[in-house]
């Protein structure tokens, strides 16, 4: 009955406003408001309200004890101190960028390369696929613990294999600030490569084989087929992979934190935020300023990219 009355109402409306079509019934509208509105509300409440409060707190000096009246407003002092007298800050920025560069230029392409190889259905590809995917199910913190066993100076695997455990010749993989970031990046990539591989493999499986056959008939080499046919077809997957890579690079934290709390060559913005905010007698204002900088860096990388991508899509459509 209700459907009928709704139809009648709709018809009546249409008569009064001849030009306006209504594609949604009231019920649809209700469902839409519920399904979109509630998540939007939750998102605003749990993401944007705290983010805005962090921005507000970044102009203050507060040790987290006492109420709002205990907060002292000090303008841009925190930002000034971050940039001038806080030694971990600039290394942290550089390390975050190196992390991003390493993932985009080396780890992610390598994961895609492995996916392309596995897609060729060679012998034992299931085995390789599983072996490469196993690290992905481990948390990055656990990956950190595992690789510490490998890099440890006297007891570690690498130094023992190389026979460099004596004080005169040992290699301090995680303690030497000029190499430890790279060692951590290898450990992080060990997991990241498998992640990208499985995503890309799923994408490759969805490519219509007819495309590849057509390319082969036209005389394209497998290399040309990939770069000129398969890769462009996989554009949606490519975007997902790039965004995931950027996100993984910017939220890098746990592996560094379990290794040495993000000091001595492993400074990252995320760790600087944590070290200042978590714990006793926190420097809430100072840590918030660092968090805001991380937010700006993240938005600065993600927004232009997504904006360009979606605008290009609209133009194409």
């Amino acid at each position: 009955m209700s459907t009928r009355s709704e139809v009648e109402v709709a018809v009546a409306r249409e008569r009064t406003k001849r030009k306006r079509f209504r594609l949604l019934t009231n019920r649809d509208l209700g469902v839409l408001v519920f399904m979109l509105g509630l998540p939007a509300l939750i998102h605003v409440f749990f993401v944007w309200v705290p983010a805005l409060l962090s921005i507000l707190l970044s102009f203050s000096r507060w040790d987290g004890i006492g109420g709002v009246e205990a907060i002292e407003w000090i303008g841009l002092t925190n930002y000034e101190q971050v940039a001038t007298i806080y030694p971990p800050f600039w290394p942290a920025v550089v390390h975050n960028l190196i992390w991003l560069g390493f993932f985009i230029l080396i780890a992610t392409p390598f994961g895609m390369f492995l996916a392309v190889q596995l897609d060729k259905e060679m012998k034992g590809s299931k085995f390789y696929q599983n072996a490469l995917y196993v690290p992905v199910v481990l948390s990055l913190a656990l990956v950190g613990f595992i690789w510490q066993l490998i890099y440890s100076p006297e007891q570690g695997l690498i130094n023992n294999v190389l026979g460099r455990t004596d004080p005169e010749n040992l290699i301090d993989w995680l303690g030497n600030p000029s190499i430890n970031l790279w060692m951590i990046l290898i450990a992080a990539s060990w997991r990241h490569v498998g992640y990208i591989m499985i995503l890309y493999l799923a994408g490759l499986k969805s490519v219509d084989p007819a495309l590849k056959e057509a390319a082969a008939i036209d005389g394209a080499t497998s290399r040309q087929t990939f770069f000129h046919v398969v890769f462009p077809v996989l554009k949606p997957i490519n975007i997902v992979i790039l965004v995931i890579t950027i996100i993984e690079s910017l939220r890098a934290f746990d592996i560094v934190y379990v290794t040495n709390k993000g000091t001595n060559g492993l400074e990252l913005l995320s760790v600087a935020v944590t070290n200042n905010i978590i714990g006793e007698a926190s420097r809430i204002g100072f840590g918030s300023a660092l968090a805001v900088i991380l937010l700006i860096v993240s938005l600065g990388i993600i927004i232009p990219y997504l904006w360009r991508t979606f605008r290009a899509d609209e133009v194409a459509a």
């Binding site: 890099y151 440890s152 100076p153 006297e154 007891q155 004080p167 040992l170 301090d172 993989w173 995680l174 303690g175 030497n176 600030p177 430890n180 040495n260 001595n264």
Partner: peptide, 12 residues
């Protein structure tokens, strides 16, 4: 002091 201290835990 033992070299490479920054990569070594106190346990090691």
């Amino acid at each position: 002091h033992q070299p490479g201290a920054l990569g070594r835990t106190w346990q090691d």
